[in-house]
Design a binder for these strands. Structure first.
Length: 270
DNA sequence: CTTCGTTCCTGGAAGC
DNA sequence: TGCTTCCAGGAACGAA
């Protein structure tokens, strides 16, 4: 579910509710969600820790404390909720109780979410190998062209690779390619030099629009306060297969690229 | 090394 | 209506 704009929105809405708070008790109802250390040690180590900054890197939330980082990946349907009173939300999987009596919940329908507590230098592979962020100086046309050189995978699969760009998911990948006018099936190594600046610009535009609209809620995504985003109302192609292209009026095609549902305009995207 | 297919899990929508 | 099948915003993993 959540891609970079959604995770950023969660970060922004969560932080005011939890910053400065101290974990009193952590109850894990589904232990396998805890990737490191064990669920028992995770809960025990968080106890007494005070939350500092709530950060984000790619699709990872990094909740800093005075004695280690609570790292959360929401995957498809995970959510972190705070500031909502004492009621148990649907699909509650972890209950965090703070010393002031307030709560934070981790909920997850499909239970693919992953959580870590790192106070010992343990390396989270997916976090350590992330590529540059959109909207950062690190994501340049030259960088992207260099990474694409010789790649035989479809350009959509290429930009979904988190080690290439941090934070793009299926929605924003389709949208970026639509804005850039590039077919998702074209091989990354075949994208031409002049197209890379357009692609970088498209990614930045699509991502900043997503953030501005508080994320895209297609099904389950909610921010740190349980609110939905509005970016689904502004999408060019994602979820619009069979409907007319907003640019040329042609019918949008739906297919699979790298096993992921993909929508594009055969006329506008070459 | 890169690339591809499978897998984890639940629920909503579409198909028959 | 009711049952079955497919699909879903992610990414790690093993196989080729």
């Amino acid at each position: 579910m959540p891609e970079m704009p959604e995770v950023e929105q969660v970060r922004r809405t969560l932080e005011p509710h939890i910053k400065g708070k101290i974990f009193q008790k952590v109850e894990v109802f589904l232990p396998r969600l805890i990737q490191y250390p064990s669920a028992e040690v995770f809960a025990q180590k968080l106890q007494g820790r005070r939350i500092g900054q709530v950060g984000r890197r790619g699709k990872y939330l990094v909740i800093g404390t005075d004695g280690g980082d609570l790292v959360v990946h929401l995957r498809m349907t995970g959510a972190l909720l705070a500031g909502k009173g004492q009621e148990v939300p649907p699909y509650a999987k972890i209950k965090f109780t703070f010393t002031d009596g307030s709560l934070m919940w981790f909920t997850d329908i499909r239970t693919f979410g992953t959580l870590y507590f790192v106070d010992d230098g343990h390396v989270i592979e997916g976090l350590a190998t992330l590529g540059p962020e959109p909207l950062s100086g690190g994501l340049t046309a030259d960088y992207l062209m260099d990474r694409a050189k010789g790649s035989r995978k479809p350009v959509k699969t290429f930009i979904l690779d988190q080690t290439v760009i941090a934070g793009l998911g299926n929605i924003y990948a389709d949208e970026s390619l639509a804005v850039a006018g590039i077919s998702p099936m074209r091989l990354a190594g075949d994208v031409e030099e002049v197209e890379f600046p357009k692609l970088v610009e498209a990614i930045n535009r699509v991502i900043s629009q997503g953030i501005r609209n508080h994320g895209t809620t297609f099904r389950d995504y909610k921010d740190g306060e349980g609110q939905k985003g509005s970016n689904q109302n502004f999408l060019l192609v994602y979820g619009r297969g069979g409907e007319p292209c907003k640019k040329c009026g042609g019918i949008l095609s739906k297919t699979k690229v790298g096993g992921r549902g993909t929508v594009y305009c055969g006329r506008c995207q070459k």
